[in-house]
Design a protein around this nucleic acid. Structure first.
Lengths: 222, 222
DNA sequence: CTCCCGCGAATTATAGATAATTTTTAGACG
DNA sequence: CGTCTAAAAATTATCTATAATTCGCGGGAG
């Protein structure tokens, strides 16, 4: 389906860089030097520049003319902002998806969230969580809306990984189950209410920092 | 402030092309050929390709690998989708902007909407309308949110211009005044309610088509 | 000692050239 | 008369090269 060789080189590069930025391999503020990246991918810098434009549009990188592009940094205000945007757009998506949700889809969503409960690390939990949301929302059939939500999910995942690099413990996600229960009963308003609260919930947790210090960082958990 | 010569060539090209697409000079489906555009701007095709990536991110163009890029087409479903996304995000922005709205800002917004009432053509009405919304919402201080709203406004303007190429008659925008009145009274909920209804309102109007036929098209009016 | 200036290395931005793919066109065949 | 095929033209995507700008560092003046 999405075989890498069918994409253009620029797309391939942007996907790899996006993964690294989200995963935290590339830390905020890191300069992305086109020649170095071009050399790494065995390409010239023209497709690299196009990849930069894509990352910029996703909010994963910032570019200053003539001064290069850096991995976007983020503050707790931006974490909040992304959470609020997600809440607003996911509610919209859910309201339009609801009429199209079959029990098969709801079952698939439940499998996704249960897989998340069993996950042993942050990355697999995030993947399962993203699947849960996408399974429920994609039936809205709104292309542009889903693209926007996907970008926000990438940003959320970045914040999550920045805070929970290790020491992750899975717990059953009661919000997800409550959303599914409400949808199965046809109570769309209730499902939306829980979804919005769930996505907006921003937890503050201690984050161990290199050097023995700890710093408080906001983490979106939904 | 935003002198064109301070931008990179790619940015400059993308702005001009965006204007043309929004204005309807470039019709949906039109192929954008990089060499031709490069020649027109007296530039090479590298910045043109970067401009394409920006347009793609804004939803104004679509690109198929190895097959070039075209001006994005749109359906009435997408018009609806953009209106709903605007409603959701503008409400969010207004709720966060409200605490920061001074009477000076509200007065500026009122001047903008009154300028729109006096406008003689669609383009100046749209500019005034956009100023009104941006004046009210920008104080939310949420950068990413405002960028998303700006892109949606561009899409809305495109739909508007596609339907109202000529025969425009200005009318006083009572919704705008109602929003301002509610904000002046500190009734944020009421302001949001009117704003959401206002943005979501999608009017169906007959659109004269070349050849004497008329076709129905959806137009966002807010 | 601090601050400012200027030179050199590194990097970005654009131009020109090349390879590969798609679209178009012309012609033959059914 | 339409359709399939193959060569030609046009176009995209990429690479290599060049110009312009920024960044870092060292020396000298105050």
């Amino acid at each position: 389906m999405s075989r890498a060789s069918e994409d253009t080189i620029a797309v391939r590069i942007s996907k790899v860089l996006a993964e690294r930025i989200v995963a935290g391999t590339l830390e905020p503020g890191t300069r992305l030097r086109q020649d170095h990246i071009a050399a790494e991918f065995g390409a010239s810098h023209v497709p690299v520049r196009e990849a930069f434009r894509r990352l910029e549009a996703q909010g994963l990188a910032v570019s200053e003319p003539r001064r290069g592009v850096r991995v976007a940094s983020f503050s707790k205000e931006e974490v909040r902002e992304v959470a609020e945007m997600r809440a607003a757009l996911e509610e919209l998506a859910l309201r339009h998806a609801a009429p199209n949700l079959t029990s098969a889809i709801l079952d698939a969503a439940e499998r996704a969230t249960r897989a998340g409960d069993r996950s042993g690390d942050v990355r697999s939990w995030e993947a399962a969580n993203r699947t849960f949301h996408r399974t429920l929302l994609a039936p809205c059939g709104m292309h542009r809306l889903m693209a926007a939500i996907d970008d926000l999910h990438a940003a959320s995942a970045r914040f999550l990984f920045a805070a929970w690099r290790s020491d992750w413990e899975a717990r059953t996600d009661h919000d997800h189950l409550a959303i599914l229960a409400a949808l199965r009963q046809g109570d769309i308003d209730q499902a939306c209410t829980v979804l919005v609260r769930h996505v907006r919930a921003v937890n503050q947790r201690p984050l161990p920092i290199a050097g023995g210090m700890t710093r408080r960082l906001f983490v979106v958990g939904g």
